[in-house]
Structures are given as C-alpha cells and as structure tokens.
Amino acid sequence: MSNTTSPFGLGAEYENKSDVKSIMIVGVGGQGTLLASRLLGNVIQQNGFDVKVSEVHGMSQRGGSVVTYVKFGSEVYSPVIEKGEADTILAFETLEAARYLPYLKKGGKLIVNTQQIDPMPVITGAASYPEDLIGKLKATGADVIDFDAFSVAEEAGSVKAVNVVLIGKLAKNSQFPKEQWEKAIVETVPEKFRELNLKAFELSYNQ
C-alpha cells in the first residue's frame, strides 16, 4: 500500500500518519453527500486515523449547495479546510466542482460527476449554465477525473445510488483496500438498500 499517486496524497511517506490530509465532498442538497462522508469516515477510522467531519449547507433547502469537510491524520483539531488545502475534491455536480476548485491544492485531484443540476438562477432564467465546464476545469491544470456517475447509478438500478458510485471512484483512486469500502457500505447502508449500493460501488470501482 505505497501508492504515491493516490488522490489522498498517501504513500510510503505517510506511514507514520503524522500528516493531516483533507478531502472535500461537494454537491447539492438531495444528492446523498452525507452518506458519502459517512462511508469515507468509516474507512478512515478502520485504518486507525483520527478523523473530523463537518457538513456545511450553503442553502438549507433541497437543491442548495452542500459541502462536507473531511480531515484525517494522527491528530486532527479542526475539520475546516481553507482555500488551497484540499488534497482531493469529490464533486457530485459539475458547477459545484467549479465553485470549490479554489480549495484544491496544487497537485490535488478533482473527481467530478459530469451530471449538471440547474441552480435556482438558471431555473428562473436569471442566468445560464456555464458551457464546457469540464474543459475549463482541465484547463486550470487540475488533475481531473470526470465521469457520468448518474448513468452508472442507473445501470446499478437507481439514480439515488450516485453517491455510492462516486465513492467507488474515490475508492479506486485511494490506497485503502476495496474490502474496507465494501465493509463500510455493509455497516452504514440500511439492509434493504445494501445490495443496490454494493452493485453501484462495484460497477464504479471496476470502470
């Protein structure tokens, strides 16, 4: 487990767990970002790290911007992530990826769902959804992994599994073993949704 290309910034140099790492999960209300942060926190704790998680709602209603800070290391005092500090950003929606890009550190990784959800100004006609956002994100020099998580979730059996599809992509690009992520799903997801979410994870992880 010495993959120095992990988006977590983990590798052989991290074995003493002394360095604090930061991950942001960003999306809009109703996409299941909270479950994603719980799964991530579960896996991190399985590996003996101290982890702090904080969820922030830009708007409280469904469809508003939501961001979760996750920081872990041997000892973490605050979950807050400042601009330029995030080792990884997991973006559930393209515009939210662009909104929080300034928080990504140089050399960090952006995993982004290409799904587009119109914010209220676009819905009301007061603004237009920006064109070619993925191209613009890549043009900044960020290390971008973009994919259609919505379609993968549909293939798994429900678009509501987008969050676990995104976790599958994060897992694939981490040094944490696949079995630990599956264990986290079993422990965190209600039994009636477990099979669906394990399938969504598997499809995403193996892409």
Rank of each mutant, 00 (worst) to 15 (best):
I167D: 00
I185N: 10
K136M: 01
A153V: 03
L104I: 01
K183P: 12
E96T: 02
A91I: 03
L133K: 01
G41V: 02
K21E: 07
K83R: 12
E155A: 12
V122I: 09
K21R: 15
V112N: 04
L196V: 06
A156N: 04
T124H: 10
K52C: 10
D132S: 10
L137N: 05
V53H: 07
V51M: 06
F176D: 03
N206C: 07
G157N: 01
K169C: 10
E191H: 13
A139F: 08
Y77W: 14
L110I: 04
K178D: 13
Y14Q: 15
Q175S: 14
I117G: 09
G125C: 00
F150N: 11
G84I: 00
K169R: 12
G108M: 02
L133Y: 00
L90T: 03
D19R: 14
I123F: 06
V162K: 08
N47M: 12
K138D: 01
G108C: 03
L95H: 02
E182W: 10
T114F: 05
E55R: 13
P190V: 06
E93L: 05
E154M: 13
G107R: 02
S128W: 07
E15M: 13
L101S: 02
G63F: 05
A139G: 05
G11C: 06
K106R: 12
M59C: 11
S37A: 10
G11M: 00
E96P: 05
Q175H: 14
A91R: 00
K109Q: 12
K172S: 10
V152F: 05
T33W: 06
A156R: 00
S6M: 05
I123S: 12
K172V: 02
I123D: 08
I23P: 07
Y100A: 03
K160S: 05
N47V: 00
P102Q: 00
A127V: 03
G107H: 08
A97P: 05
A149E: 01
T68N: 11
G27C: 00
L137V: 03
Q175M: 14
P119F: 04
Y100I: 00
R38H: 13
F147E: 05
R62C: 09
A156P: 01
E15K: 13
K17A: 09
A127H: 04
T33L: 15
A149G: 09
V152M: 06
S37F: 03
I117M: 13
